[in-house]
Design a protein around this nucleic acid. Structure first.
Lengths: 402, 402
DNA sequence: ACTCACACTGAATCCGTAC
DNA sequence: AGTACGGATTCAGTGTGAG
């Protein structure tokens, strides 16, 4: 079976065609058991999408889920994981099935996806979260630990200083013989929590393509990030409008999507071609940023008050304030680019446009020979602060004449 | 059975003594299916509290839960509700039991109690929520709807304007015959959500009594608030250290507590006399009251791969990588600080700690006279990229000899 | 394969104290 | 007086190694 394609067909049949132990992540998002027929029209009302989630009984529904899960387990590598996203009405029954297929021991986390939502008139609490169950195939599952910032209540001594135990078992800050503070080892921050606050798709967002139960790309990117690496294979057996595939493609993972509906397959393919990812103000400001441009580049642009632009290899952003009534393009030297590459790319993107100031931000050290080249261009080169700090460190390491 | 008392005894036996249709709220917090023994000593080490979560099998455990729940249902009024607090490992089985006893129709909400918590060495996501299931005895359950503030991203028009449906079923803003906007009726805010962020009972809180698994009073107060009125009866069949009773008493509700352990009953009675409820800054003001850094400062820290740190005016963050095996503190010159202020603050915060490198990031231009001062300190000063760009602009504006 | 006891983790936050 | 900061405590914690 070819990767990076979306297949129309029955989920179990298509999964059967997949080789055993070949998949790194299955995102499993079955049609909800609500006994209702879903449908939605696109904004221009030209097309209607439909799927049926009206099984005769809960048991039939669960039998189908179980059969799918068994196939999912077969295709997963030993290091692979499944993320099952389900609706609140049947989630507990589905989890019982998960225990049956994967084993209670392989339950890793219940992820709570919480979001703010428009109120409804329901009596009771406003429903504003969904549950995602994370099971691994074995205890050797792949997991990319990543770290978030400390809480605002955490004080710095806590982070900085080492501790020791007194004879009485009290834990106190460590001091050396002279009574000086002993500093602790490198800290990484706080491990990612199992509750994720990610904005629900804004009803007007570009990303919205008129298909029921669409998930935000950011949610899928987060999942893909923690349990797969580049080049790994992600499978979504109920791919619907293809959000998982869009997320996987944007992160250089391979993907296979399956859906029973021809409409869904066509829609997903169109999305993959267009690759629209919401870039709304809300998402930018979000508690965490889960953006396409690397977070590092985004941070640099933000720190110089520049607006990021997407999908232009020569320009990463523009300063928000014009200079001499002209925009100021900014290019950040990429990880795999030489400084000259970066300059040339920016030059190329600027051709035919009259800018008064063009900026390249250098992110890596370069031999002097190459750097002379920069004089031929009117581009201004400034060093990234990280680079400046690197040089500071080198200077401090080689003792100067004090 | 007398109210406002705590009874020692088996949960089912004691519930049997209670009259049918007499209770407004049952807070049901059974031992979890953790298969572990929990013990904790009081701070003065005078008393050790223990209980065991060991069960022969999941079925035994669920049988016990079911028997208790049947009694709970009997004692509840038609307008009454049960809140069942359970753990991540067995929550789905418990909910299946709840469906069996109370009926799927009477499921009202899954409440997520989320919190920040100190971390540990777990592979995977950091566990930071617990689940509470809210089932009512009938559809006539009592519910005190209350409202929270709108999210900051909410469009003001959405709050103010009324809506109507078009012939095609789309929801649009309502206008009168002249096309003027029709303002809607008074809005109350957003109904209370089903995800509650309430701080975990802190290791240093005075509220702590040394009983394992003690809950914050605030969590119980929230539950009591939404489904009972003054004078109503609250029952906790596994009351432990008596948090529910303390919360109920503080809100003028009647209560009955039941626990099998004599130690727990005595402890709960003592708490009821003393009524210590922690009054924390975090509970009162929320996390926002601690937040000090702007997005701009956060972006600078991210761009140099530094961990942001709050609650210290002299240090804004640390480089993630140590230098000469020592942390590297970073201070960003504040909007209202001179460069000297910034340097002095950093110096002060570094007192007694041996750093190999200290960095101040200068964000504003300063007259030369002041800048000479920096030579007295071993702090390295680097200019923010924004500042470098400002200087570039000035250089470009004043024509040089080309 | 399992269980169990033991050692170890590490940040959140209330409180006390110094300014 | 109010604010700022330093200190210690906790594990509905987890991982590990012996039996």
């Amino acid at each position: 079976m070819e990767v990076n394609r979306i297949y129309k067909g029955n989920c179990i049949n298509k999964l059967t065609e997949l080789e055993s132990n070949s998949v790194d992540l299955v995102y499993f998002d079955p049609p909800f058991f609500t006994q209702k027929k879903h449908s939605l029209v696109t904004r221009d009302e030209s097309k209607k999408y439909e799927f049926s989630d009206s099984w005769d009984s809960l048991n039939d529904y669960l039998d189908l889920i179980e059969a799918c899960l068994i196939e999912c387990k077969r295709v997963l590598k030993e290091t692979g994981s499944v993320f099952l996203h389900c609706d609140k009405v049947a989630s507990h029954y589905i989890r019982v099935t998960l225990d049956k297929v994967f084993g209670m021991k392989n339950f890793q986390s219940e992820i709570i996806w919480s979001y703010k939502r428009w109120s409804n008139s329901k009596k009771g609490l406003l429903n504003s979260h969904q549950n995602i169950y994370f099971y691994s195939k074995s205890k050797h599952f792949k997991f990319n630990q990543y770290y978030t910032n400390y809480a605002s209540t955490t004080n710095i001594d806590q982070i900085l200083q080492d501790r020791k135990k007194t004879a009485k078992g009290k834990s106190i800050y460590k001091t050396d013989e002279d009574g000086n503070i002993v500093l602790g080892k490198e800290k990484k921050g706080v491990p990612l929590s199992d509750t994720w606050e990610i904005p629900y798709l804004n009803p007007k967002a570009k990303e919205r393509v008129g298909y029921p139960t669409q998930k935000p790309v950011l949610l899928l990117k987060e999942i893909i990030k923690i349990v797969t690496d580049k080049g790994d294979l992600v499978v979504d057996p109920f791919c619907g409008s293809g959000t998982t595939c869009v997320a996987a493609k944007s992160m250089d993972r391979n993907f296979i999507g399956i859906d029973a509906s021809q409409d869904a397959v066509e829609l997903a393919n169109r999305r993959l071609e267009e690759m629209i990812i919401t870039d709304s103000a809300l998402l930018n400001k979000g508690y965490n940023s889960y953006l396409e441009k690397s977070e590092y580049e985004m941070a640099i642009l933000k720190s110089i008050d520049a607006l990021p632009v997407q999908r232009n290899s020569g320009i990463d952003g523009f300063l928000r304030k014009h200079f001499n009534e002209k925009p100021v393009p900014v290019k950040i030297q990429g990880k795999r680019e030489t400084l000259n590459d970066a300059i040339e790319k920016l030059e190329k993107s600027c051709q035919g446009k009259e800018f008064e100031l063009k900026i390249v931000i250098q992110t890596r050290k370069e031999s002097r020979g190459n750097r002379l080249f920069e004089l031929e261009s009117d581009i201004e080169i400034i060093q990234s602060q990280e680079l400046i700090i690197e040089e500071l460190k080198e200077k401090s390491t080689v003792p100067n004449n004090v």
